[in-house]
């Protein structure tokens, strides 16, 4: 069962084609990383999924059309953009009151329990909170919505490492269940790599990789190649060569090459960041 189904999604800003015939799906229970360089079309894709921008093509999110049924869809969907989108004039208590007033699935007690583990006071205004606290507050709200699908767009941008680590730990502890899916767009790939079940690479408005992590690990291999083996490795057509400690890290597309690669150097699972650089450079 797919929570999200996108077919032929295109978006044009005047003469500039930002998204070009994108297709992808997000299955129930999946954690999908939407990875791409700046200007690749990640945020536009997320906005299209949220019904915040017009587009061509068909989008189905949780059985709803985002553009015409956004308010119904949002009953089951949580969204956190980069830090600072909570209204600065609001008090924390008002944010909770309002969300509880308009969101049928919002569990206020759960939000308050999460907030009790932070230093956020209910009578503080959002503008008085630090960036990290605003993100904690927004995360507490979203986790208490018991959403089926959570969409995160650079949620930890500008936060220090402690807040970033706590953020993802909280998602692991309080969100991810079998029937909940997560779509996350970030540049800090290393921090979410262990969470992901699927990868979506986007570059210049096109999807350049759409695969499950199992398929990725089966298909792509990283080899730490010593200097004397470089010529032999190049004959096996790596998709990327990246300088590494004491040699070169080469990425190969094709799990069938494993026996040949093992003769060249230690073969290991490819890291998402390495693969991303390889795919984007190759395109």
């Amino acid at each position: 069962m797919n929570y999200v189904s996108v077919k032929g999604l295109s978006k044009r800003f005047k003469d500039h084609l930002v998204l070009d015939q994108i297709d992808f799906e997000i299955p129930r229970g999946a954690v999908v990383g939407l990875i791409g360089p700046n200007g690749a079309g990640k945020t536009t894709t997320l906005k299209a999924l949220l019904g915040l921008t017009g587009h061509e093509g068909a989008i189905d999110v949780l059985g709803f059309s985002p553009r015409s049924e956004r308010h119904k869809m949002m009953q089951h969907l949580g969204f956190i953009s980069d830090v600072g989108v909570l209204p600065r004039w609001m008090k924390v208590s008002e944010v909770l009151d309002f969300t509880a007033g308009v969101h049928l699935n919002f569990d206020r007690a759960k939000a308050e329990t999460i907030l009790s583990t932070t230093q956020i006071r209910s009578n503080a205004t959002v503008k008085a909170l630090s960036k990290g606290m605003v993100t904690q507050l927004h995360l507490a709200l979203v986790l208490a919505m018991n959403a089926k699908l959570l969409i995160l767009d650079e949620p930890t941008l500008g936060l220090d490492i402690v807040y970033r680590s706590e953020f993802y730990q909280r998602i692991l502890d309080d969100f991810l269940r079998e029937d909940q899916s997560l779509l996350i767009s970030t540049h800090q790939v290393e921090e979410i790599e262990h969470l992901l079940t699927h990868l979506l690479f986007i570059d210049r408005g096109k999807i350049c990789l759409n695969a499950s992590m199992d398929d990725v690990f089966e298909r792509f291999l990283a080899v730490d190649v010593a200097k004397e083996q470089i010529d032999a490795a190049i004959k096996l057509e790596p998709i990327s060569e990246q300088p590494g400690l004491g040699g070169t890290v080469m990425i190969f597309d094709g799990g069938f090459k494993r026996p040949l690669l093992e003769a060249i150097g230690p073969v290991r699972a490819v890291r998402v960041a390495e693969l991303f650089v390889a795919m984007v450079k190759r395109d």
């Binding site: 949002m74 969204f79 209204p87 308009v102 969101h103 927004h138």
Partner: peptide
């Protein structure tokens, strides 16, 4: 014009309301 529009639009409230 305010960035908080992303928060308001992320809630299940229709434009009509």
């Amino acid at each position: 014009e305010d960035r908080s529009i992303l928060f308001w639009k992320s809630l299940p409230v229709s434009d009509l309301m």
